[in-house]
């Protein structure tokens, strides 16, 4: 099977979905790049290069470079979604949700319910998240929890190229507003990805590793830190269930609960601030529904409760790190 990067996998999904369904459009800032300029169009193909090649393939009618105007981009996508198109809107950095959040959570998320099931909003909002580039306090935040808490939104956070393609194709087919969260640290990671179209259903967790000492649930880039640590500790005989929910809404509670029932111990890892994050959310679900299975306190490794600092050493300290993850695993394993 061909090996593709996370970036290539999402790009391929967009190409295939647009070829497959004429109602799919892409819009956002620099999704092509070069609009109105003397030089070449498709100059960027998105600031992360994810939408590269779509403009030459599908034209300006379906690949729309917008001014810098997030409220109108997301609102236009929502309005178009209600009226026959399947827009994939790019928000560039997840931090920019702040500019257009009304169009997401008061508009797109609520149409179907508020209008008694008579309106649908089949749109995807793509955004880049995550720290690690010293991009500062307004270009590094993972705000997955903010969209996960909104009823009506579906939230996808792929951790590998295979999932990214299958989840993107599912997101475009889905009839609800889907927030597609791409971790910027993962774009260059690669794995085997089939050439043909395939979908991965929402709400189905992926078990990266299986084991018996404890259950680890991780979201986005921190998953790869977890895997590195877990594989190292496997040499000492420590084995873990490592679960990637793949979508935080819907959440595959069953997979997590079943695992905790056998291991009795749970570690949650994400790169969000600790209060009201995904780790905190899953922790409450497990405490409520699998209390009798727990043989140790639930542990969370998250980012610190501060804005993301700029200085690289502070940023590293802010993020959940390998050492924090290893310490938490050891603590849980030793807990009797």
């Amino acid at each position: 099977m061909p090996v593709k990067t996370y970036r290539e996998a999402i790009n391929e999904a967009l190409h295939q979905a647009m070829a497959d369904d004429a109602s799919v459009i892409v819009l956002g800032e620099e999704v092509s790049g070069g609009a109105g300029c003397e030089g070449s169009r498709d100059a960027y193909g998105g600031v992360m290069g994810i939408t590269k090649g779509l403009l030459p393939a599908f034209g300006e009618e379906r690949v729309i470079d917008t001014p810098i105007t997030e409220s109108a981009i997301i609102g236009a996508a929502a309005g178009a979604a209600q009226t026959g198109l399947r827009p994939v809107a790019e928000l560039m950095f997840m931090d920019f949700f702040g500019v257009c959040f009304d169009q997401i959570y008061n508009q797109a998320a609520k149409f179907h319910y508020m209008f008694g099931g008579k309106s649908q909003c089949p749109m995807v909002v793509r955004c880049t998240t995550g720290a690690g580039w010293s991009a500062g306090a307004q270009h590094s935040q993972n705000l997955t929890q903010m969209v996960t808490m909104v009823p009506g939104l579906k939230v996808v956070c792929p951790t590998n190229a295979y999932d990214a393609k299958g989840l993107m194709l599912q997101a475009i087919k889905d009839n609800d507003c889907v927030i597609f969260v791409e971790d910027k640290m993962l774009y260059d990671t690669s794995c085997e990805v089939p050439d043909e179209m395939y979908t991965i259903p929402f709400g189905e967790a992926n078990f990266y590793r299986e084991g018996s000492d404890l259950t680890i649930v991780a979201i986005s880039n921190p998953m790869h830190k977890v895997l590195a640590v877990v594989d190292r500790l496997a040499e000492e005989g420590i084995t873990c269930d490592v679960i990637d929910p793949r979508t935080t809404s819907p959440l595959d509670e069953e997979a997590i609960l079943e695992s905790v029932e056998t291991t009795g111990k749970l570690l949650l890892v994400d790169e969000m601030t600790p209060r009201c994050g995904i780790a905190a959310d899953i922790s409450s679900i497990v405490a409520e529904k699998a209390f009798s299975s727990l043989r140790a306190p639930i542990r969370k490794v998250t980012a610190a409760h501060s804005p993301v600092p700029f200085a690289p050493n502070l940023e590293q300290a802010w993020m959940p790190g390998d050492a924090d993850i290893e310490a938490a695993i050891r603590e849980l394993v030793e807990y009797v």
Partner: peptide, 13 residues
């Protein structure tokens, strides 16, 4: 003249 790689003659209606 530019917002990133988009010209003002396009983006400023």
């Amino acid at each position: 003249g530019y917002g990133e790689g988009t010209h003002a003659s396009y983006a400023v209606g």
